[in-house]
Amino acid sequence: MIAFIAKRFSAAIFVLTSISILVFLIFFATPGVDPAARIAGRNASQETLAQVRATFDLDKPLPERYLSMMDHLFIQRDLTSYVNRGEEVWPQLIQAVPATLSLVIGASIIWLLLGIGLGVTAAGMRKSWIDPAIGVVGIIGVSLPVYWLGEVVNLITQGRLHDTAFRWVPPLGYVPLTENPGQWFLSLLFPWLTLSLLYAGIYIRVIRGEIVGLMQEDFVKTERAKGASEKRILLKHSSRMSLITVVSLFGLDFGALVGGSALLTEVVFGIQGVGRLTFTALQNFDLPLIMATVMYAAFFIVIANAIVDVLYAWLDPRVRRG
């Protein structure tokens, strides 16, 4: 088991290193792209370009620049932004984390409750109209563009109805929990619901499919033969088994969202989180900040992947040998 964990985590380190090299190459070595011209802006003169190259060490060889950036990012932790000169990237990133965490944790509670509740109900009511009805909810959930749903929600809560029915909804933006817990909750309520509808759709479909598949397994037949009621089989056995899938899926989704995949929701609702920070950095070609946010995002995903794999190996010894 320890050998498996060691192997899994060395693979994680390899993936993280590769991602950092990949990001670096995308921005500095894509054929036909001149980073100096991008940083200097359109129609910059030759002198400005030369100046930009000198300031940002763009004329030094790629490996040297890569190592220097990694050194400043992880060892000295004093990497500074290209755009806001002198501003360090770590504090910017750390400042954005609470908003993203608030958004993702709240949304994940809602989608887990909805996904598990409706998924189990659908699997248990396969002979009535309730199953197809829940199926429709699930399929709409996975087919919605989240940014568009967010705009529709804004149209309802911030538009004409804002003066009457939705007077209690604060204007777009994030209010820190430590500043005003009530406003924190209200400002995040609709972003939570928007983000969770999409994921609830995915989880409803996965959980229902998983339970329906498990209902044909031998252990369920044994339970039936022993005289267990269908309700008991559903709630005590199948649902519990399907949780293994839910836990692994949740690990990956949560990791990706905390890492910045909630970017569209953050942009639409004006929440200054990690996703929005990453997007601004990408638009400004602010490579140090991009490197920091992408490494931070990849870190969460890779760690979530590794934890899920180790949990699986712990639950199922066959995986360890593979």
Partner: peptide, 11 residues
């Protein structure tokens, strides 16, 4: 492991 949206936006 590269978040799909970050990779596609970067590119």
């Amino acid at each position: 492991a590269f978040p799909v949206y970050l990779l596609s936006i970067s590119l």
